[in-house]
Design a protein around this nucleic acid. Structure first.
Length: 687
DNA sequence: CAGTGAACGT
């Protein structure tokens, strides 16, 4: 047997094409096995390289089992054969098999080459197996691959994925050769380790050395901008790509969509999305989650439908975003069917399991949430946290606490989020003593250093209970510079307890911190309005407009006979508008007779008192309640979902309404459930 | 010869 001009001449003198070309044309296992037979016949099979080609061919069509069979049957295995099998497992997403084969290879005394190390290191990165990775790193150095650029980048990526950016940077700085991949690994590593400033810094270094980036690098840079929330920089990166004529592929464009969407710049995000020439499921769900996370549940759900009309099957991620949207508007019916879809068509993971729990609880079915929680086999701290938070928003602080204690008993370690859920549950139930106690020992007994989030919960807990001064003092005791969340909690307390002097100061502070949330601007402007600082109110409005943030309009949703009906504030578009208005007039007449006084201090504008009163009764939750009363039989429980906090005047009014019409009215706002019955609310007027 | 770096979620 010898090779001649790209052909094989067999022992019998027959001319065959060299199997490599033949193999690369094979589209199915059958044709590959025919060539396999040919190779055995011609004796080519004993050659290590051709074993490798055969293995690679099976791997290419996704048949790892056959690839493995060829591997095991090979009479002799050179490094090419080993690499082919290792690469097959790597492509097949089987990092454990990669590691196993590598170990076996070393034991059998085969000398690995640069590819072997590169691929095996990649497997360690995806397993976050730093220990094994470091061992392979030292072996790679022993075998003389210290300055190999492929091995080098793989090592950087190993440290980056394991969150060891200090190490990665040290190695990177000491590398004799760097290429675009190693630069990219550093930038992406920093961006994904929550160090976006360092990511941008690496890019600047690159620019000084006059190295041009590519699409993959830009994705890392865009992620850094997303994490920084710095849209000036983000837009400049976007512009840079256009000017430099850098290729825009679906991944780059999707990360741009994600960046704008996360910042609430949904018009920009949609524009980039619409201009994409090619989209996939990830692009659709990036935009969808952007809408959902910024409170535009309806738009998000429209996208879920639209993507399917374009032939894209929603994946778990888009379904989780859809569940979030359902939670926001109390769309139990759709949430249930998404739950069913996940069970039948996708299969749960931990995140989606938690999202379903969250959906049931926010749509009013606390018991369904609990049943699901008890049923899921793999309970991690996230599902515990979701269930604790569920009790919290339903105002069941005691149950939340007891679940927390149960979690401890089952030796599930509480984490940061557990304490955040617990403290917020205690806060909603006014369990101040318990809050102080657990906050006090979370560091000493659980080793969890209270973060800004916990301080914010604690400030909320105190300020909500009227202990605004104590909350203020707590902020003063913080070691780190208090962030926006903490001040916002205090500000809400100031507003709810009429501490306007302090409130004004805090409002200024919050305003200076440039929040990225229209709701926070609304609160700031609200406090200024209460303090009658109309100039400041106007200024806040102006800044909001300039940042281009889409303001979330207040709306309420009520479910009547399985259909959702949404009402905006002062919504006159509804076909039953006149009946609704008449119903509200009638109710108001009776309410006033019973002693109801409109609380106009919650209207923002500098307006006449009578106009303010008018505006209050046109709040979306009132329209939804009136519509619900008109369209359901006596005694039916009403469930209303509001996307913002229910205003205090509406809260007061709903108590009266529940008494007048003798109905149970459940209102869920962005924070919690209010259960109205017989003129009282389950929250005990606890703000 | 191939092998290294990339997007969406509770």
């Amino acid at each position: 047997m010898y090779k001649s001009a790209g052909n094989i001449v067999s022992r019998t003198g027959v001319l065959y094409p060299w199997p490599k070309q033949l193999l690369s044309a094979c589209k199915d296992a059958k044709s590959i096995s025919q060539i396999h037979a040919l190779m055995i016949f011609t004796g080519v099979f004993s050659n290590g390289d051709s074993n490798g080609q055969l293995i690679a061919s099976y791997a290419r069509i996704g048949d790892v089992t056959s690839a493995r069979r060829v591997f095991e049957e090979s009479p002799q295995r050179g490094v090419v054969t080993w690499n082919a099998m290792i690469i097959a497992y790597s492509r097949n997403d089987s990092p454990n098999e990669v590691q196993n084969l590598y170990r076996r290879m070393i034991l059998e005394g085969v000398r690995p080459d640069s590819s072997t190390f590169t691929v095996t290191l990649k497997a360690c990165s995806s397993l976050l197996d730093l220990k094994a990775g470091e061992k392979i790193r030292s072996q790679a150095i022993d075998f003389g691959y210290k300055d190999d650029i492929f091995v080098g980048s793989s090592i950087l990526n190993l440290y980056a994925k394991c969150g060891k950016m200090d190490e990665a940077l040290g190695i990177f700085n000491g590398m004799t050769k760097r290429d675009l991949v190693s630069w990219t690994t550093m930038i992406t590593g920093f961006a994904q380790s929550g160090q976006p400033v360092e990511a941008v810094e690496v890019f600047r270094r690159m620019q000084i050395e006059e190295i041009k980036g590519d699409a993959v690098l830009m994705v890392g840079l865009i992620q850094a901008c997303t994490n920084l929330g710095d849209m000036k920089l983000g837009i400049s990166v976007h512009g840079y790509m256009i000017r430099q004529h850098l290729p825009m592929d679906v991944v780059v464009e999707t990360s741009l969509v994600d960046m704008y969407a996360k910042k609430g710049l949904l018009n920009l995000a949609s524009r980039v999305f619409e201009k994409m020439s090619y989209r996939n499921v990830v692009s659709w769900s990036a935009l969808m989650s952007g809408f959902a996370q910024n409170g535009f549940a309806g738009n998000a759900l429209e996208l879920l439908i639209e993507m399917q009309s374009y032939g894209f099957k929603p994946d778990l991620v888009s379904l989780v975003s859809a569940l979030l949207a359902c939670s926001q508007i109390g769309f139990l019916k759709l949430g249930k069917s998404i739950h069913g879809y996940i069970v039948r068509r996708v299969e749960f993971d931990r995140v989606s399991g938690t999202a379903v729990i969250d959906m049931y609880s926010k749509c009013g079915s606390l018991s369904s949430a609990r049943i699901l929680f008890d049923r899921i086999s793999y309970r991690d701290s996230i599902s515990w946290n979701a269930m604790i938070a569920s009790y919290g928003i339903h105002g069941h602080g005691k149950e939340a606490l007891s679940l927390f204690l149960q979690m401890k008993l089952m030796s599930q370690r509480p984490d940061h989020a557990t304490f955040a859920s617990l403290l917020s549950a205690l806060s909603h139930s006014g369990l101040v003593e318990e809050g102080r106690y657990w906050f006090g020992i979370m560091h000493s007994d659980f080793g969890i250093q209270p973060s800004e989030k916990h301080f914010a919960c604690m400030v909320d807990l105190l300020a909500r209970a009227g202990l605004v001064e104590e909350a203020h003092k707590l902020i003063g005791s913080m070691e780190d510079e208090p962030g926006i969340a903490v001040w916002v909690a205090l500000l809400a307390g100031c507003r709810n307890h009429g501490k306007l002097e302090l409130g004004e100061k805090v409002a200024k502070k919050v305003f200076e911190l440039k929040p990225n949330d229209p709701g926070i601007y609304a609160l700031v402007s609200n406090v200024f309005a209460l303090a009658r600082k109309w100039d400041e109110v106007a200024l806040v409005r102006k800044v909001m407009k300039e940042t281009g943030m889409k303001k979330v309009p207040g709306y309420s949703v009520v479910e009547v006979r399985g259909k959702l009906h949404a009402f905006l504030m002062e919504d006159k578009s509804h076909p039953q508008h006149h009946m609704i208005a008449a119903m509200l007039d009638r109710l108001e007449y009776e309410m006033r007779a019973m002693g109801y006084v409109p609380r106009t201090e919650y209207v923002l504008h500098d307006l006449d008192e009578q106009v303010k009163e008018r505006m209050l009764c046109n709040h979306s939750e009132r329209l939804a309640i009136a519509f619900g009363l008109l369209n359901t039989g006596p005694g039916t429980r009403l469930l209303i979902t509001k996307n913002l906090r229910v205003c205090r005047d509406c809260h007061e009014a709903t108590k009266f309404i529940s008494k007048i019409v003798d109905r149970e009215i459940v209102v869920r706002d962005i924070k919690r459930f209010h259960h109205f019955k017989d003129g009282v609310c389950s929250c005990g007027d606890y703000w």
